[in-house]
Amino acid sequence: HKPISGVSSGCQQGGCLTCSDYNGCLSCKPRFFMHLERIGMKQIGVCMTSCPPGFYGTRSPERNTCTKCRSECDSCFNKNFCTHCRAGFYLHLGKCQENCPEGMVRSDAQRECIL
C-alpha cells in the first residue's frame, strides 16, 4: 500500500485551513482529517482525506482527527477493530493475534485466520 495519500507537503496543502511555518497545518478545511506527522525532530500538522496506514480517522462535528491503531495492526477501523495485521499476526473478527481460534488456520498471504 502507498504510505500516505490525499496530502501535499508544507503549508500549501489542499486541505489546510490555517497554517504556520513551524507547525504546518493548524486547522483543516471541513471534512479533512488532521494528522500530526513526525519527521525527525519536527512534528507538523497535515490535512488529508484519509489517515495514513497505521492510523484511523474519527469524525466529529468540531474536528476530524487521525489516531494511531494498535501496534499489531497495519490498518484499523477504530482502536479496537483492525482491518489488516502486521507481519506475524493474523486477523479474525477485527483482532490481530499470533494464533487463530480453534478450527481455523493462519494464512500468511492475507495475514488472516481462514477456515
Binding site: H1, K2, S5, G6, V7, S8, G14, G15, T49, S50
Partner: peptide, 10 residues
C-alpha cells in the same frame, strides 16, 4: 492491467 494500487485522490 498490472496495476494493483491506483490513487486518484485530491
Amino acid at each position: 492491467p498490472l496495476t494493483t494500487y491506483l490513487d486518484l485522490s485530491m
